[in-house]
């Protein structure tokens, strides 16, 4: 079981570092967020197996639904940003500062 947990921890770390290190592309940020949610999903499934409890697996379905909704809104926002600025580079999002 430990190796599965390490796997999900690595996924989580990849997601987080993708959010913090990435300085270019908004789509990559969206992907990183999805990876974080996936890491949590993996954890939930592993623990559901460990406890012999079905609730954890049911939770995963809810999370997947939420992730889909989040991706829909996120991509819609990316389209808006692109329409406004003709770029989806993070560095160009600098109108709001202070």
């Amino acid at each position: 079981m430990l190796q599965y947990l390490i796997f999900s921890a690595i996924l989580f770390a990849i997601g987080l570092s993708g959010l913090f290190i990435n300085r270019k592309n908004i789509i990559v940020l969206l992907m990183s967020i999805e990876i974080i949610l996936l890491a949590a999903n993996t954890n939930l499934v592993i623990f559901a197996k460990y406890w012999g409890d079905i609730t954890g697996q049911a939770f995963v379905f809810f999370v997947m639904t939420v992730a889909a909704a989040e991706a829909a809104i996120g991509l819609a926002l990316v389209v808006l940003v692109f329409r406004d600025k003709q770029t989806i580079n993070i560095q160009d999002l600098d109108q709001l500062k202070g």
Binding site: I36, A40, L96
Partner: peptide, 21 residues
């Protein structure tokens, strides 16, 4: 407005991700 929304979206989703993990 789109810029504010995407900033809010990314940070909010990060919060949700931390919470979920």
């Amino acid at each position: 407005y789109a810029e504010a929304a995407i900033k809010y979206f990314i940070i909010g989703s990060l919060g949700a991700g931390l919470l979920l993990y």
